[in-house]
Design a protein around this nucleic acid. Structure first.
Lengths: 210, 210
DNA sequence: TACTTTACTTAACATTGTTATAATGTCGGT
DNA sequence: ACCGACATTATAACAATGTTAAGTAAAGTA
């Protein structure tokens, strides 16, 4: 009685330990450089034990990516519903940059790695679109359009979302992948991002408004 | 007499064949998925033969990346020196997008893959900065700033170059890495890029000008 | 007590990048 | 014509990788 619960609890615990170890090592050394054996060593199991909890290495990554996506969405939600929809757009960009700079490797896992997400999990993540980070951005875009402060030719929330996502993502990606290359004199990412976002919003506003 | 030349010519030829095969396979299946054995098979050599021409797999990639970077720079140069420096900025963005969409896998190799470029080659590529793609963009930015048509607070060519590079790169990167994900309703990349660039430039111009 | 199930290990597999060693030829000089 | 040096490729192996087949030992269930 209750022993069954204890078992599943312990199972969940080792599962958690695997995930934690994998996350740390993925984040520190990257996905490719992290071996299943190294993960197993870290938690003092044999590599095969991992396969009892996860189908394969990709599944491990996928699970972590989904969790990280959720934490980004959560950061977005904490922005709350700032009254001015245009200002809200700027804040979202800022939070995005903050997340990417605070967790560069997590960011790399989420947005810079091509992973065939399992369709089942995908559907789950999609079930509540209001919780997704992209959905949050899209909603903010729709609100900004409806406010009437943007140029009249800006009317597609998806297009606008992508026009705003691309710049911040691009800057983060370049800094992560090319940040060490000597042929570019990189400027401070936070500052560049701020000015870039500001410029973008400026270009989006209609003639009269500023 | 002349046999020495023939030898080095033949050596260059097999070197070329290795590069061609590698390029095709990297581009078709990606870097990780392409094995040295597969490359060797394609040109009907043993894997070891490749090591007589290239230090290792990374060196192969590096060589190809440098060549592709050069071809991007060449595309930039073909834009020529359009009189209006602001218009030139738009054209560069357009050429960049065109290149990325025409050669998505080359693009991936150049800008989406983290590779420790050998410093020697790096220096070579750096020796003539006017030939580099980034240097070209930077020069155009400097010209635009000097034209006086931009906002007065925009005065750093490097910062401006990065503010303009990031959006187009971001859009291309997202389309390549996340283009298949179902949770985003992707809009046509070319159109989005065009409107994004236009918006960006609009935000950069000083108050009176437009 | 006899069975099934669970959580894990041992040992192996094929595949990877890479290398030590050898085979084969080609050139320059005598 | 022959010999030694060198260049080019092959054979065979290495260690490391993700993954799996088969087994083990303990706990739960009957």
């Amino acid at each position: 009685m209750g022993s069954r619960e204890r078992r599943t609890r312990e199972r969940e615990k080792t599962r958690e330990r695997i995930l934690d170890a994998a996350r740390k090592m993925f984040v520190r050394h990257g996905y490719e450089a992290t071996t299943m054996r190294a993960i197993a060593d870290k938690i003092e199991y044999t590599p095969t034990a991992i396969y009892h909890h996860f189908r394969n290495k990709q599944a491990l990554l996928t699970e972590l990516v989904i969790a990280d996506l959720e934490s980004l969405a959560s950061a977005f939600r904490q922005i709350g519903r700032i009254e001015d929809p245009v200002e809200r757009l700027g804040r979202i960009g800022q939070a995005y940059v903050e997340f990417a700079l605070d967790h560069p490797m997590h960011y790399q896992l989420i947005f810079l790695t091509k992973h065939p997400l399992e369709t089942v999990k995908m559907r789950l993540a999609r079930q509540d679109p209001a919780e997704g980070a992209y959905a949050f951005l899209r909603a903010a875009c729709a609100a900004a359009i409806q406010s009437g402060r943007l140029r009249p030719d800006i009317k597609d929330p998806d297009e606008l979302a992508q026009m705003l996502w691309a710049p911040v993502h691009g800057l983060m990606a370049l800094h992560i992948v090319k940040g060490e290359d000597p042929w570019v004199e990189w400027r401070d990412a936070r500052k560049t991002a701020a000015r870039m976002n500001e410029t973008m919003v400026r270009g989006l506003l209609r003639e009269g408004a500023r």
